Computed example of a mutant assay.
Amino acid sequence: MLLVRVMVGKVEKIDRLVNTLRSIPLRQSEQGWNCVTWVREALGALQADRKTLGTARMEWNKVRDAAMTYCQKKRDEHRFDGKGNYDMGKAATYDLTEQKEGIQ
Rank of each mutant, 00 (worst) to 15 (best):
R79H: 13
E12S: 01
D15W: 04
R27L: 14
K83T: 13
D49P: 03
C35T: 13
K10D: 04
A92S: 14
T93E: 11
T37P: 02
K90V: 14
Q28P: 00
D49T: 03
S29M: 09
Q47L: 04
R64H: 15
A66T: 12
Y70L: 08
M88A: 01
D95F: 06
R75P: 01
G54M: 05
T37C: 14
E98L: 12
D15T: 12
K62M: 13
E59T: 09
G32Y: 01
Y94T: 00
C35L: 09
L96A: 11
L46H: 02
R79S: 05
N85C: 04
E77W: 04
M88F: 10
Q31D: 04
F80Y: 06
M1T: 03
I24N: 11
E41C: 10
R50I: 02
R50S: 06
V18R: 14
E101M: 01
L21H: 08
V39D: 09
D76M: 09
T55K: 09
Q99K: 12
W33I: 12
E101R: 03
G32N: 07
I14W: 10
L2Y: 05
K51F: 00
K10A: 02
D49S: 03
T37N: 15
C71G: 11
V63R: 01
G54K: 04
R50V: 08
Y94K: 01
S23W: 12
L2H: 13
I103Y: 13
V63E: 11
V11W: 01
L96F: 08
R64K: 14
R22D: 15
R50M: 05
R40T: 01
T69P: 00
N34Y: 00
D76I: 05
